[in-house]
């Protein structure tokens, strides 16, 4: 890393080169893990308990959010053996609605803030956005980094924003969205992860869901390795949240495999691993029903909230 970093901030950014081809091969090898039967059922339930069930549409209404919260609590009617999801993720104006709907459950309410998804607003606006969401009752804040600042090399500014948003969060947990699809290389994903963790992120998160590619397995692996290194150096466990583009149950199980083999079982908990998704749970539910009944399922039999 260039020495100018040290000038602009207290960041201690060591070079952690990432070899793209090596990452792809590791991902491919991890994907050969075969998850069958009991392990599959247990894995899918675990993954469901880690979902941040998300709606982030301009068209979101209180009705839509309440519907989503019902799904978050009761993933599939008629099955009592399923967990609740970890959190519901909404825009700040919907936090209050979600809190009410989830009253009495352990489900957390996460709000995207800081001029999500672009982050193209002054810091003061972003901080106000954050404070508002927290005041509305958000347990968790999903912020976006300023990709423009990052890409032009102003890492100090990026770090400084994260630090200030963290302060604005108070007790709320902070997830820092890197928007990896805009960063260009895995080296930059690694660098952004290091900056976010050093600046106070409780979680690092791949994407807003508004940009493709989003949570590719390659990006997830690089971020998990960054978390592993951070833990090795500081003893502090940072959480991970892939979000966007996680297509199906198989992809979700592959994420668990990655977490297990890169970070270990200590991270296999919703308090350290989340999956941001809206449609994904139904595919996992179909697989669970298939395991229960032995019959391949159709989406018409699963509520689309």
């Amino acid at each position: 890393m260039s020495s100018s970093l040290a000038v602009s901030t207290n960041l201690n950014l060591q070079a952690h080169p990432v070899d793209e081809v090596g990452i792809r091969e590791r991902v491919a090898r991890l994907a050969t893990r075969s998850i069958k039967k009991a392990s599959k059922v247990e894995g899918l339930k675990l993954a469901l308990s880690m979902v941040d069930l998300t709606t982030l549409e301009g068209a979101d209404t209180p009705g839509k959010v309440r519907q989503l919260c019902t799904k978050a609590i009761h993933l599939h009617s008629g099955r009592k053996d399923l967990p609740m999801v970890a959190a519901v993720c909404v825009y700040p104006t919907m936090v209050r609605i979600a809190r009410e709907a989830l009253q009495g459950t352990p489900i957390q309410v996460a709000a995207v803030a800081t001029a999500f998804p672009s982050g193209m607003n002054p810091l003061a606006v972003k901080l106000e956005d954050t404070r508002y969401a927290v005041a509305e009752g958000a347990h968790e804040i999903d912020m976006v980094i300023s990709r423009g600042d990052f890409l032009r090399g102003d890492y100090g500014r990026v770090a400084n924003e994260i630090e200030q948003v963290k302060e604005a969060c108070g007790k709320a947990h902070l997830k820092v969205i890197l928007e990896t699809g805009e960063l260009g290389t895995l080296d930059r994903v690694r660098l952004a992860s290091d900056i976010a963790m050093q600046s106070g992120a409780d979680f690092i998160k791949t994407s807003t869901g508004k940009i493709q590619p989003a949570a590719t397995p390659e990006v997830v692996l690089v971020m998990l390795q960054a978390i592993s290194d951070f833990y090795r150096k500081t003893g502090k466990r940072i959480g991970m949240k892939p979000a966007g583009g996680i297509a199906n149950a198989k992809a979700a199980l592959n994420l668990l495999i990655m977490v297990r083999e890169v970070l270990g079982p200590a991270w296999l908990t919703p308090s350290l691993f989340r999956i941001g998704a809206s449609k994904l749970p139904n595919d996992m539910l179909m697989q669970l029903e298939k395991e229960r009944t032995g019959v391949y399922q159709g989406l018409d039999y699963f509520s689309n909230d």
Partner: peptide, 18 residues
């Protein structure tokens, strides 16, 4: 709905024979 917070305990989830 008796839980009051999400689990912080890591899972020992692993791979069944395949």
């Amino acid at each position: 709905m008796t839980e009051t917070s999400i689990s912080t305990k890591g899972s020992n989830w692993g791979y069944a024979p395949a």
